[in-house]
Write a protein that binds this DNA or RNA. Structure first.
Length: 468
RNA sequence: GGCGGCGUAGCCGAGUGGUUCAGGCAGGGGCCUGCAAAGCCUUGUACAGGGGUUCGAAUCCCCUCGCCGCCUCCA
């Protein structure tokens, strides 16, 4: 049974779905005001893998992840560039999805946009106000955090100590420095929506409550996001839900940072690598592998060296799958493989069980990968001792388990489409040269093929080529 | 200031007190190969430092040092 660390209790707890056989999961998505960086990629990959694994394990997963398309940063950017906030949001949402596609992140079932839920947010704020848990001051409507007895749960701190540590000068009209804005009254030139408190826009913390409850219902199973969202964002969502008398997320899952030289990768520190930059230079699968090789709650150091390391490891898996003849893998982006599928394909039961045991244990992807690499070695060894069938089953298992993690192995020789007549001619000529023991000529042809972008490998069946 | 976390071999990175150094990458040696590539075998004797508990600690407790994060927008 799947168990995950819960930020609220600090312990690894079994996931007991609200609805039998179905897991409902909400993950805070990006604010689309700029290009996403590796840190955003990490959370997207972590939750993509959680989702894929739950599907693998036989659950139906309702996965919702939002797009924040109205926010101060979007407005500021739009003003600086003389565009509308809509144009800015649209542009960077496009960049986001294109990066997600490259990473092989499957689309959520629902991707609600904040601007599509303003009316519901106004209603929710009204509900909080009517219960006496929100109040209006000169620049907006605020949430009264004193309404929530255990405010600070996700920060693991008491409200008094949180308030004492507040580093930002508080609006003097606020009843407590911890109180947060629910509705921001519009200043001239700002986009706005009508409300009982005048034209304005919702504060950030309200959209996720409204959208998660609206799409997944009360008491949904998992709420996730980057560790920095635990407080105050998720705390404030929880508070609002309580203030409306609604049961909220049952389980809180937060992933750790991407770090650079030990420091958090962040826009404000300027130490970030954008996903597009990364993806234009490296195999997107390498980033997924890099993310999965560390535990999702640990910090993850990304350097050229660790990326190279991941690429080499990936090429080892590709090579094993290829030489052990697992056959073509389907492109699984956007699709899922289940445990049943894997076994039906011929994956080894024991290996699948071990894989699941690791994954069930707080998504131990490093352990799961270690198991896969053991299969890689066993398959190679089996092939070397001449047991092709055993090797093939190992390779099938590796393919299936990688697919469960969202990794598609590149294990096939290039099809007819990838090889032109000249390549084909060179391969035949080299085989002939080798048969004639004309090594000089065989080597010359190998160089020629290399120039044409192929890696040449000899095999019992003759010359094989694959893309460099 | 409050709270939380981290410090493991050349690098990355798991480790739930107890035979074999999780796994990957890089390096050395060997096998295979016409040479390569791919693969296999082999090689590493690590747990920040200091105390303590224990028959036994990387793993539990205490202290010290160093690093990071949250308390502000933030994945």
């Amino acid at each position: 049974m799947l168990a995950l660390h819960d930020t609220a209790t600090g312990k690894v707890e079994p996931i007991v779905p609200r609805d039998v056989g179905r897991i409902s999961m909400y993950v805070c998505g990006p604010t689309v005001y700029d290009v996403p960086h590796l840190g955003h990629g990490r959370f997207a990959l972590v939750f993509d893998v959680l989702r894929r694994y739950a599907e693998f394990d036989g659950y139906e997963v309702r996965y919702v992840s939002n797009i924040t398309d109205i926010d101060d940063k979007i407005i500021t950017k739009a003003q600086q560039e003389g565009r509308t906030p809509e144009q800015v949001a649209e542009e960077f949402e496009g960049v986001w999805w294109s990066a997600m596609d490259s990473l092989g992140v499957a689309r959520p079932y629902e991707t609600p946009h904040a601007t599509g839920y303003v009316n519901q947010m106004v209603d929710a704020i009204g509900e909080m106000a009517s219960r006496g848990n929100a109040y209006e001051i000169s620049d907006g409507v605020y949430f009264d955090t004193r309404a929530v007895k255990d405010y600070g749960l996700l920060a693991l701190q008491a409200p008094e100590t949180l308030a004492a540590g507040a580093r930002v000068q508080s609006n003097a009209e606020k009843r407590s420095p911890l109180d947060f804005v629910l509705w921001k009254k519009a200043k001239p030139g700002e986009p706005s929506w009508p409300s009982p408190w005048g034209p304005g826009r919702p504060g950030w913390h309200t959209e996720c409550v409204v959208m998660s409850l609206g799409l997944l219902g009360e008491g949904f199973d998992i709420h996730g996001g980057g560790a920095d969202l635990a407080f105050p964002h998720h705390e404030n969502e929880r508070a609002q839900s309580i203030a409306m008398g609604k049961r909220f997320a049952h389980h809180w899952v937060h992933n750790g940072w991407v770090t650079v030289g030990g420091e958090k990768m962040a826009k404000s520190l300027g130490n970030y690598t954008s996903l597009s930059d990364f993806l234009s230079k490296s195999d997107p699968r390498a980033y997924r592998l890099l993310v999965l090789r560390s535990h999702y709650r640990s910090p993850l150091e990304v350097t050229p060296r660790t990326v190279k390391d991941a690429e080499e490891a990936l090429s080892r898996m590709d090579a094993m799958s290829r030489r052990c003849g697992a056959g073509p893998t389907v492109d699984i982006s956007g699709q899922y493989i289940t445990r049943k599928d894997a076994l039906a394909l011929g994956a080894l039961q024991d290996a699948v069980s071990r894989f699941c045991a690791r994954m069930d244990s707080d998504l131990d992807t490093p352990g799961a990968l270690a198991g896969i690499f053991e299969l890689v070695k066993c398959g190679n060894t089996a092939l070397d001792r001449g047991d092709a069938e055993e090797a093939r089953r190992m390779a099938l298992t590796v393919n299936a388990l990688c697919a469960a993690l969202g990794i598609t192995l590149q294990n096939t020789d290039p099809g007819p489409s990838g090889v032109d007549a000249e390549d084909d001619r060179l391969v035949r000529e080299r085989d002939q040269a080798r048969a004639d023991r004309d090594w000089a000529r065989a080597d010359a042809i190998r160089s020629e093929l290399a120039k044409r972008g192929w890696v040449v490998e000899d095999s019992p069946d003759g010359t094989k080529i694959r893309k460099a």
